[in-house]
């Protein structure tokens, strides 16, 4: 059992969720409430990581975060090291490839709030921020929870992009998915089986917990 890789994966998933939660709230809410020219294109862009082969996305990320890219050079100048093949680089990639998993369910969650409820919040004297906190977030919560669970579980399982952007540096970028691959390559089928089962269990519990909480919340509201 490769505990270092498992911990790294959990750390990566946790940070990705932490960064994407506010992004999901604001982007999902914006897409749910506003209609603007080019909205379809924006929605398509958000969905893109879902349909692109991970290697393609990984390739573009590698190029755009690499040492010769402006982002890579900026990072180098600020922190004195490369961005690719490091944990921060992996985290940026993880945030990007999880955008559809975070934004889409959040958007659906905000879309499910009747317009009259938002208007009622305003007519109750709530400022937009207070209405978000008191009315919108509690009602969009099932969608946001789904978004976070999918992001978490999907980060644990991502393989292709992690390999392209992160490589396989133990404790830095070697996630559990890559560790399993390494184990199989080294004919350690028992190790691969134990880790696969662990990953399976964590993912299942995450998703099940989300569904259970959503259903409980839904029962109270209906």
């Amino acid at each position: 059992m490769d505990w270092v890789s498992l911990l790294l994966s959990l750390r990566l998933a946790g940070w990705t969720v932490a960064i994407l939660l506010p992004v999901a709230v604001f982007a999902g809410r914006f897409l749910a409430y506003r209609s603007f020219a080019g909205k379809g294109l924006v929605e398509a862009l958000v969905m893109l990581p879902l349909v692109l082969p991970p290697t393609v996305l990984g390739f573009y990320l590698l190029v755009s975060l690499g040492a010769r890219s402006p982002i890579g050079q900026g990072w180098q100048a600020l922190f004195g090291g490369p961005l690719v093949f490091t944990f921060p680089g992996l985290l940026i990639a993880s945030v990007i490839f999880n955008l559809p998993f975070a934004i889409q369910p959040s958007q659906r969650g905000f879309e499910s709030i009747p317009v009259a409820l938002r208007e009622a919040a305003a007519c109750c004297g709530m400022s937009p921020l207070r209405a978000l906190w008191r009315v919108e977030l509690p009602l969009a919560w099932p969608g946001l929870m789904t978004a976070m669970a999918l992001t978490f579980a999907h980060t644990l399982g991502e393989f292709g992009i992690v390999l392209m952007v992160g490589g396989s540096i133990p404790g830095q970028t070697k996630t559990i998915a890559i560790s399993i691959y390494d184990k199989v390559q080294g004919f350690d089928m028992t190790g691969a089986a134990v880790m696969s089962a662990t990953l399976l269990a964590i993912s299942l519990v995450t998703i099940w917990l989300t569904f259970w909480l959503s259903a409980r919340l839904g029962r109270r509201l209906s």
Binding site: P114, A116, L117, E119, A120, A121, C123, G125, R134, V135, P138, L139, R220, L221
Partner: peptide
């Protein structure tokens, strides 16, 4: 605007 409004659907906060 300092007003009170009763909506047609009542629009009570369900939570």
């Amino acid at each position: 605007r300092h007003l009170g409004m009763v909506f047609q659907s009542y629009a009570l906060f369900p939570h």
